[in-house]
Amino acid sequence: MTDYKDIIIDHYKNPRNFGSLDNADISMDESNASCGDMIQIQVKLSGWIPGQARNDKTVIEEMRWRGVGCAISTAAASMLSEKIVGMNREDLEEFGEAGIVEMLGGEVNAGRMKCATLAYRGLLKIFENNGN
């Protein structure tokens, strides 16, 4: 009937790693202009010295997030927060939109890709704005 697979409903209703980190290394905000959804992501990193640029040795150790979003963006953030532990820049880039779609059960309505990738786009920022 709908694209709302059980796994999406589960993560939507019981989002994992929801909240904030006391000792976060960096925080990123990302939003979807057309629907007003917003997410704040905090991560702890290893292989990185504060004040210096993140490099290929930098690995995501932990992620927490919060924000307002739909079932798709919420479930995607929740699932991602588990999936990305241990990933470095290359892993994250390789995961890509295809990884998100697969993670969400193999099918995402084209109109919802922005929802599905909200948290992912936020995470990519770890390796942008480098050095802060």
Binding site: M1, S34, C35, D37, A71, I72, G111, R112, C115
Partner: peptide, 19 residues
């Protein structure tokens, strides 16, 4: 969320806008 509502309505053939 309005996007979810709109997508579920779409699954019944109803075109409404959300956002």
């Amino acid at each position: 969320h309005p996007h979810d509502a709109a997508q579920i309505l779409d699954s019944f053939g109803i075109a409404v806008r959300s956002g």
